[in-house]
């Protein structure tokens, strides 16, 4: 969809304070930073060159110089400072600050500074938002993992796989840490498997630092299986929370018809069982039979059998 004149006007105005604070910026860099094409940045700059304050003599126009693909601002007129955060940007900033104050607890002075900063950028009061995720607050291995990411060090971890219900010891080199769906995950290179694996940090039971490791990540991914599911409307969040595995979504009378691609079929089976009776398997049939068999076994545990 073509952008509106107003959206283009705002981006064009945003260019000026950015170039002013980041002098000798190339057209190429600006295009990258502002997520548009070099041609569009050139057009924007040509346009703003014609703009200014009433009177519109050379003294009142915005003055920029474009030389060898590098932009400099000579006179920004009133555009010497950036626009305030938009509604959505403000949410990113305030929630981000709130989370920072939880995970950077080792510096107690920071929490107070962050609270002051939130009050400065928004009207939201400190007691109106609470990040209550215990994992954000007390992940005892985060510091060790962070250091190992920086140093590319091996960690020997004890790990309980919640899908396989097994406890193992593994040597891994952590690559990134991220929060998703309320859990903290570590993406790491598994030394024995010579491939990347994802670990839930709260399932790590032991974490010891080892030596530095030079390695090449095996890019080959695990094979994926395509499964068709029918998800009832009340479980819409199951779809929203697992967007990374979802290939397509269609509406049906019963809810949503969803096609997922998974490498970890055990995880999917447990997820479907957890949400009984909200998710039905449309295909493949052998997987549907396997999950039904498991559901029947669970029911038998309570002394009942299905008709």
């Amino acid at each position: 969809m073509a952008e509106s004149a107003a959206v283009r006007a705002l981006r064009t105005m945003d260019l000026i304070p950015y170039v002013l604070e980041n002098p000798s910026c190339s057209i190429k860099t600006l295009a990258k930073r502002f997520s548009t094409t070099e041609k569009q940045i050139e057009r924007d700059l040509e346009l703003i060159f014609m703009c200014g304050l009433p009177g519109y003599t050379p003294y009142e126009l915005i003055d920029i110089v474009l030389e060898d693909g590098v932009v400099s601002v000579i006179d920004p007129q009133v555009l010497n400072r950036p626009r305030r955060f938009s509604k959505t940007e403000l949410v990113v900033i305030v929630l981000g600050l709130k989370i920072l104050s939880e995970i950077k607890l080792e510096r107690s002075d920071l929490r107070e500074k962050i609270d002051k900063l939130i009050a400065k950028v928004s009207h939201i009061k400190n007691d109106e938002i609470l990040i209550n995720d215990s994992q954000l607050i007390s992940s005892e291995f985060v510091e060790t993992i962070n250091k190992a990411i920086g140093n590319r060090q091996i960690l020997r971890i004890g790990y309980i796989s919640v899908t396989k219900d097994q406890s193992t010891e593994r040597d891994v080199v952590p690559l990134t840490l991220y929060y998703s769906n309320g859990s903290l995950y570590m993406n790491a290179f598994d030394v024995e498997k010579k491939a990347e694996r994802v670990f839930r940090v709260d399932a790590i039971t032991k974490c010891e630092t080892g030596t530095f490791l030079e390695f090449e990540v095996n890019q080959s991914h695990l094979p994926e299986i395509i499964i068709e599911l029918e998800v009832q409307d009340w479980l819409r969040f199951f779809v929203e929370r697992n967007m990374s595995i979802i290939r397509s979504v269609k509406h049906s009378n019963q809810g949503l018809l969803v096609e997922v691609a998974v490498s970890n079929i055990d995880w999917l089976e447990k997820s479907i069982l957890s949400h009984i009776p909200g998710i039905k398997i449309k295909a493949p049939q052998d997987f549907a039979v396997r999950v039904r068999e498991n559901a029947r076994n669970i029911l038998a545990l309570y002394g009942y059998s299905a008709n």
Binding site: D14, Y18, E21, N22, S35, R81, P82, S86
Partner: peptide, 18 residues
């Protein structure tokens, strides 16, 4: 969220430089 966080970052860098 990335678009909004990138836009916010551009504004911060327009105040501070990198």
């Amino acid at each position: 969220v990335e678009i909004d966080s990138q836009n916010a970052l551009l504004k911060i860098q327009s105040l501070s430089g990198p």
